[in-house]
Design a protein around this nucleic acid. Structure first.
Lengths: 228, 228
DNA sequence: GTGGATGATCAAGAATTCTTGATCGCAAAC
DNA sequence: GTTTGCGATCAAGAATTCTTGATCATCCAC
C-alpha cells in the first residue's frame, strides 16, 4: 500500500521536526508547512491523505483555514489546539467526524487518532474486500489467499467479491447474477455455474482449507468459512 | 444495495415486535430469536450483518454467548443491557469496537449505533470507491457519474480506481502501471496512455464537468476535482 | 430400474478486451 | 525553420475472457 501522506501545518520548527521524525518512522510521508500560505501550496503539490492543523498560525486562524481546505479536499483534518481554548468552540467547528487533539499531546495518542481517521476514510481498505485470510484487491485485479496471489478475471473477481461480501449467506443464482452482471438473463444459472467452477479451480478445491463454496441444491450457492 | 440483515436476540415478544417494525420500516431485514438456541439456528440460517443481543436471556447469558458468536461470525454485536448492570463489566467484555446500549433505549439512538457499526465494517461501501459525484462499483464493474451509469472494462475500472484513490495526486506512469497491472514493463507508458484515452472518452472529455484527467507533461497524470 | 431434475465440467465459437505499432499535433529547443 | 520529444489518438492483430451447447454424474421420485 502506498504510504499515507500527512500535511503537518505547524509554525514551530522544532515541534515540526520531532513530529516529522516520529511519523516518518511509522512509515508515513510527512509534508511540513510553517505558514498557511505554504500549506496552501503544499496542498496543491501533494494532495495529502490527512491534515494536521495547528490552530494558531502566524498568518491566520486554522479554523478559518479549515473552511478553505474543505473546498479543496475531503482528507480528514485533525486540529492541534491549546488546552486553554474553548473546547465547545472547537467541537462546534468540527464536522463530519474530524478530530482534534490538545497540546501538549502524546505522540502515540496523536498517531492513534491519525490511524483512526485514515481507517475511517477507508484509506487502507479502499478497493479491497478482506475476509481473513482471503483478500480481494480490485485495483490489482487479484485475490490473495494465505499469501498466495491468485490472478482473477473480471467476472471471477466480481463473483468472489459477491461471495466474500455475503459469506455464509445463501445466494440464489438470480441474486448473484444481478449483483455481478446486473439485470437478469435466462441463461443466468448456467453462466454463473461455469464461473463458479472456474473460481473453484483457481481457489483450490478446498478453498485453501479455509473456505467452502457449496451448492445448497435449491438453486443457491453458499460461500462459507470452514475454519477459524 | 442489499438490505442489511439484523439478528435480534430478545426474549420479550413485544419488545421484539416493536423493534422489528421500526427497523423493517428503515429498510432492514430483521430476524428475531427469543432464545439463544434459536439465535444459533438463525445465525447459521441467515448470516446476519449485525447482531443485537439482549444480555439477559432465559437460556443463558448473552456475554458468554458472545464468545461463541465470535467463533462463527465477525458481524458487529451490540449488547442490550439493563442500566443496573455493572458498566465496567460490560465495557470489559466489549472487544474490537462493538457497542452496547442500556435499556430502556431510544430506538433512534439504537438505529444510529447500528448504522455506525455497519459503516465501520464497511457493509455499505465494500467493493466501492466513492468520490462524489463519482462512484466506482467493482462488484458491478461499472462507474456512476451524476447518476449516469458507465460500464467499464477491467483495466479502465482499475485505472479509474487508482485515480480516484489518489485524486489530486501526481501519479507517474510507472506508479500507475504497478498499481493497476502489477510489476513494470517497457511499454508501460504507452499502454497506460491508451487506457487513459479510453477512459476520457467514456467519462466525457470534461469528466462530466466535475473532474479533469490531465497530464503534467513530466510523465505523470493527475486526476482532480475541478468543481465542489 | 427408469426417468427427470439438478449441478459440474468440458469444449469451442463468439465477443470483448488488451497491447502494440503507426501517425498526428503541439511545443520547446536548437 | 527545423528538429526533437512527448502526449494523444487511431487501428488492427493478438490474447483473453465470456457465453452457450453438450455431456456426464448424482440424487430423488416414480
Amino acid at each position: 500500500m502506498k504510504k499515507a501522506t500527512l500535511l503537518m501545518v505547524e509554525d514551530e520548527a522544532d515541534v515540526l521536526a520531532i513530529n516529522r521524525e516520529y511519523f516518518e518512522g511509522k512509515g508515513y510521508e510527512v509534508i511540513g508547512a510553517d505558514t498557511l500560505a505554504q500549506a496552501r501550496f503544499q496542498l496543491e503539490e501533494h494532495s495529502p491523505d490527512l491534515i494536521l492543523l495547528d490552530v494558531m498560525m502566524p498568518d491566520g486562524s486554522g479554523f478559518e483555514f479549515c473552511a478553505e481546505l474543505r473546498q479543496k479536499t475531503n482528507a480528514p483534518i485533525i486540529f492541534l489546539t491549546c488546552r486553554d481554548e474553548n473546547e465547545s468552540v472547537v467541537k462546534g467547528l468540527l464536522q463530519g467526524g474530524d478530530d482534534y487533539v490538545t497540546k501538549p499531546y502524546d505522540l502515540n495518542v496523536l498517531a492513534a487518532r491519525v490511524g483512526a481517521q485514515l481507517r475511517r476514510t477507508g484509506f487502507m481498505t479502499a478497493g479491497k474486500i478482506e475476509l481473513f485470510p482471503l483478500s480481494i484487491d480490485f485495483l490489482l485485479g487479484e485475490a490473495t489467499l494465505d499469501d498466495e496471489c491468485i490472478p482473477l478475471t473480471q467476472k471471477e473477481l466480481q463473483l468472489l467479491g459477491c461471495f466474500a461480501l455475503f459469506a455464509g449467506r445463501r445466494l440464489s443464482y438470480d441474486e448473484i447474477y444481478s449483483r455481478a452482471w446486473g439485470g437478469s438473463s435466462p441463461g443466468a444459472a448456467h453462466t454463473v455455474a461455469v464461473h463458479v467452477a472456474n473460481l473453484r479451480k483457481k481457489l483450490g478445491a478446498d478453498g485453501g482449507g479455509w473456505f467452502e463454496l457449496s451448492n445448497s441444491g435449491k438453486g443457491e450457492y453458499i460461500f462459507s468459512k470452514v475454519r477459524y
